[in-house]
């Protein structure tokens, strides 16, 4: 009975941790889905959004602003920063590269990554900035069934709720709005989309803005978990196997991929790691991803691309 309780605890903890990875993965999916660009800078965007939020929030609290007002204005300030970032990326990086090869666009986002990492630390500082927007303690459920109960972290549950809301909102945006459909058209073919009158620069600005706002949401959760700091950029590495498993073009896939990666890596670390030396969860997630690639190269929910030759 104790063992069942422990396995359940690791499984639930893993599933919820996976949802937090999905929050980061969603940003990747959005930009890939809408522009066909694999945005290497998504981790750096989470850092920029988090720093803009926490530094402005601290600034206002230090000057006596009420907490609710400081949070609201901090979120607004961070959103404006992400909008400026989206405009600069579209205007000076992606705009001039319209119709270029996908690899060229990908390389340009690597450049954006380093610029964002450097600039955000230079402007907002490179310390650890605590952020406490959500509770971080835990519930112990089913204590009657299992000694000590099953631990469920409140922050993880908040992360799950936020991710669910985001997915629902994004699904509606992509399926039921004119801009959403235009985004999908641009992803299929830049030139064709332009030829039917879709303003590609506006569409790219919108998609980078939405990805920036998703990064801001991820930053609120991860910033509460870790404190806002440079290490947040490493989350991009946690999101990669999620994307490979879920598919680069599927919003629900990002969630399912996160659940598989989170639960798989936690169970592997706790129950397999102790027999082979531990520290395996980072690469175990990629083992899972490779296994999926071999069976379904497009990921579980990705679009199967068939090209005429």
């Amino acid at each position: 009975m104790i063992v069942v309780g422990q396995v359940l605890e690791v499984l639930i903890g893993g599933l919820l941790a996976g949802v937090l990875y999905s929050l980061v993965a969603l940003g990747f999916v959005l930009i890939y889905k809408a522009s066909g660009v694999f945005n290497f800078a998504q981790g750096a965007m989470v850092l920029l959004a988090g720093l803009a939020l926490v530094r402005s929030l601290d600034f206002m609290v230090a000057r006596g602003a009420p907490t609710w007002a400081a949070i609201a204005l901090g979120l607004l300030f961070a959103a404006v920063i992400m909008a400026i970032c989206a405009w600069i990326v579209e205007r000076y990086v992606l705009g001039p590269l319209v119709n270029q090869d996908g690899l060229t666009l990908f390389m340009s986002t690597i450049g954006v990554t380093f610029i964002l990492e450097g600039a955000s630390q230079m402007i907002f500082g490179s310390d650890v900035y605590p952020l406490r927007l959500f509770p971080t303690d835990a519930w112990f459920v089913a204590e009657g069934l299992f000694p000590g109960g099953i631990l469920v972290n409140k922050l993880d549950v908040w992360g799950g709720l936020i991710a669910g809301t985001l997915v629902a909102g994004l699904a509606i945006f992509f399926q039921n709005t004119k801009t959403g459909r235009a985004l999908r058209a641009v992803a299929d073919d830049h030139a064709a989309a332009q030829s039917v009158g879709i303003p590609i620069s506006w569409i790219w600005f919108v998609v980078w803005l939405v990805a920036g706002l998703v990064a801001l949401v991820a930053a609120t959760v991860w910033g509460t978990k870790l404190g806002v700091q440079f290490s947040i950029t490493f989350l991009a590495l946690k999101a990669l196997p999620v994307l490979i498993i879920g598919g680069f073009t599927s919003v629900p896939g990002a969630i399912v991929g996160g659940l598989i990666v989170g639960s798989g890596e936690k169970l592997a670390e706790v129950y397999l790691g102790q027999h082979i030396g531990g520290g395996i969860e980072y690469w175990f997630a990629y083992v899972l991803a490779l296994a999926v690639l071999l069976v379904r190269p497009q990921g579980l929910f990705g679009e199967r691309i068939i090209e005429r030759i």
Partner: peptide, 21 residues
């Protein structure tokens, strides 16, 4: 017992669940 944490250490849920157990 030695429990490793992979660089940079942003994700330690498994390690601490193992400690709880």
């Amino acid at each position: 017992k030695a429990i490793p944490v992979t660089h940079p250490g942003v994700e330690q849920k498994s390690q601490w669940l193992a400690i709880r157990q």
